[in-house]
Nucleic acid binder design. Structure first.
Ligand code: SF4
Ligand code: SF4
Lengths: 148, 148
DNA sequence: CTTATATAATACCTAGAGGTATCATTTATG
DNA sequence: CATAAATGATACCTCTAGGTATTATATAAG
């Protein structure tokens, strides 16, 4: 059900950077706002730029910018990179070698859940998140100004 | 999305024991069939009897029996004991202290997923699993005779 | 061209879920 | 009763996601 921490962090980072998608954000600024453990955040940012969601500007006054259009970056794309296992079609009972010739009573139901989640992730882009944030200020006010 | 191993194990154990709900099963027999790591299985069985899904018969010829009616044991009840965190209403973004005054764009969608899962777990009892197993032999044939 | 400020690379540490090992206790049976 | 066959209790080990620490590299600006 819930995502691993790294995924949550990635979602929050990109959602935050979408607020002003065209400017660059330093790790320090993101840390100030999101309070993701600093050094882990550093590592994650370089991963996100290696996987081309961001590009980095090195040196003084450096930072990261979102690369590409917000509406083209779906949450599904992010999770594919950051936690690919999340999306694989797992057996409800955790069985590796089920033949799946005739499926058990949980199989289709669980596929339904998976489809439900996938649909949400595939249909929600950073543009949607940004728009949601503008409509009610939750992200700017609460979500993005956490206490330590 | 997927459950932790202990939950998967619990589901499989109880589903298996539901096949002949009235007799007792030794750990050795369950191990033979399900190939859950032996000593971990032992530990889990005593947990399941402490939480009253099973009761244990000690001594020679001992084992475990399902306690109560199959239709009264919902998967939800099991997971409540074995992985209570699974069901808590987690924020999509993993935020602890969101005020939730005005909810973000993901909130309701994610609640929908949670409700979906909860409905499945709350509505499926061991009796349903057993019935499903009888209709197509997946559990008996594949699911419950795994290789090491 | 030096310095300060940024990211990059890499190696290491930690907590907790999952898994093991050992010994104690219960009880059917001869 | 003695023994074997079962569960109970408890302490320890292990692997990995998450988190730290350190050093290297890039670059804006004086
Ligand atoms: S049919 Fe049932 S046991 Fe087999 S993979 Fe699907 S959920 Fe798992
Ligand atoms: S409103 Fe959004 S940020 Fe707040 S708890 Fe719900 S999902 Fe999380």
């Amino acid at each position: 059900m819930k995502f691993n921490k790294t995924t949550e962090y990635a979602f929050r980072i990109l959602s935050y950077m979408a607020i002003e998608e065209s400017r660059s954000y330093s790790v320090d600024e993101i840390f100030e706002k999101l309070h993701i453990p600093y050094r882990y955040l550093r590592k994650l940012m370089t991963n996100l730029s290696k996987s081309n969601f961001l590009y980095s500007i090195q040196g003084k006054n450096g930072g990261y910018k979102i690369s590409g259009k917000l509406e083209d970056i779906k949450l599904l794309n992010l999770i594919e990179v950051v936690d690919p296992d999340y999306l694989v079609s797992n057996c409800f009972f955790g069985i590796e070698n089920c033949s799946r010739e005739s499926t058990c009573i949980m199989h289709d139901q669980w596929d339904g859940v998976r489809t439900h989640i996938n649909t949400i992730l595939a249909n929600t882009s950073l543009a949607d998140i940004k728009q949601g944030n503008n409509q009610n200020k939750i992200v700017l006010n609460t979500f993005h100004s956490l206490k330590t």
